[in-house]
């Protein structure tokens, strides 16, 4: 796809003998808000760093706005914003000074937006950064990434240190940024409800591979929980195609199925003479089921 914001092809990354990212291929289009989910150590940070060229892949390629991520030209960098997991602020400076330093690198900086967000998010621009709390530092890191109104915004667990109010304000801002359909946002988080609320595409990273990539509705349609009831012998003989987990009790079984299709419900009823109820799962439950 020529106009993909980010494109990865057979991307792998190893640290010593440990393969953290294993043969990933993906595309991120403008207007997409991608929520990246994965357990600790699944490779989320490594994947984001590979995307932006912070670390070279062991094999494969990744491009940002059509340019190899390892060699992004200045104008392309101007279109990218990044919030690292751990802030990289300059402790000695005041908030205003830090903002001015970063602003000076960009030809287009939305000072009005930053001023408004500082006000709304209660960021004291006169304060020294070393005196800020962890949450306040996180807010400032996010502001620094918003200032140039990036066309690609990559956020590595940006809300981990924010209070619920700040988190909500941040999410509202992300919605505003992505609303014009021209910008792509990729953010990793362990707060699944945030991803559920915001992302229109979900990536679930497991053992270095994308265990799922697609939109949230497809994911929810694809992975469901079945409650199967019937005679004890009938339930004991039930085989559920695509079951991630299957728990049987006398006359009752619960299965989580991947790749669910409505026809399966009819065939289970017909073949095993059981009743089948289908329960939709939330993203958090899906994530837990996929990692059982």
């Amino acid at each position: 796809m020529a106009d993909a914001t980010v494109q990865g092809s057979h991307l792998s990354k190893s640290f010593g003998e440990r393969r953290v990212i294993d043969d990933l291929s993906f595309e991120v289009a403008p207007g997409e808000v991608i929520g990246l989910l994965g357990k600790n150590g699944a490779g989320k940070t490594t994947l984001l760093e590979l995307m932006l060229g912070f670390t070279p892949p062991t094999s494969g390629t990744v491009s940002v706005f059509g340019h190899p991520s390892q060699r992004l030209p200045g104008p392309v960098k101007s279109r990218v914003g990044f919030v690292p997991q751990q802030d990289e602020l300059l402790d000695q400076l005041t908030v205003a000074d830090q903002l001015r330093v970063i602003e000076s690198f960009y030809a287009h900086w939305d000072a009005e937006l930053i001023e408004r967000l500082c006000r709304e998010w209660n960021v004291n621009t006169a304060a020294r950064i070393k005196n800020l709390s962890v949450g306040e530092r996180q807010k400032l890191s996010i502001l620094l990434a918003f200032g140039q109104r990036p066309h690609l915004l990559v956020l590595d667990e940006p809300v981990a240190s924010l209070d619920p109010l700040a988190r909500r304000q941040f999410l509202e801002q992300l919605v505003e940024i992505s609303a014009d359909g021209e910008r792509a946002v990729i953010f990793s988080s362990h707060i699944v409800s945030d991803i559920e609320r915001l992302a229109n595409r979900i990536w679930i990273l497991k053992n270095g591979r994308l265990d799922w990539q697609g939109d949230l509705d497809s994911l929810k349609d694809s992975i469901v929980r079945l409650h199967i009831r019937g005679a004890a012998e009938a339930v004991a003989g039930v085989e559920v195609p695509g079951a991630i987990s299957l728990r049987r009790e006398a006359g009752f079984a619960t299965a989580v199925v991947r790749g669910w299709k409505p026809e399966l419900q009819h065939s289970l009823r017909a073949v095993h003479a059981v009743t089948v109820e289908v329960e939709s799962l939330g993203l958090e439950e899906i994530f837990l089921e996929l990692h059982r």
């Binding site: 912070f54 960098k77 101007s78 990044f82 400076l93 690198f105």
Partner: peptide, 25 residues
């Protein structure tokens, strides 16, 4: 004398890689 500390922190972080001509500047 804060220059080595400030420039060092900027150059070692992600910023120098992502700011336009960050390392050169």
């Amino acid at each position: 004398s804060n220059m080595p500390l400030l420039a060092g922190r900027l150059s070692q972080g992600h910023a120098a890689r992502l700011l336009p001509q960050g390392r050169l500047k």
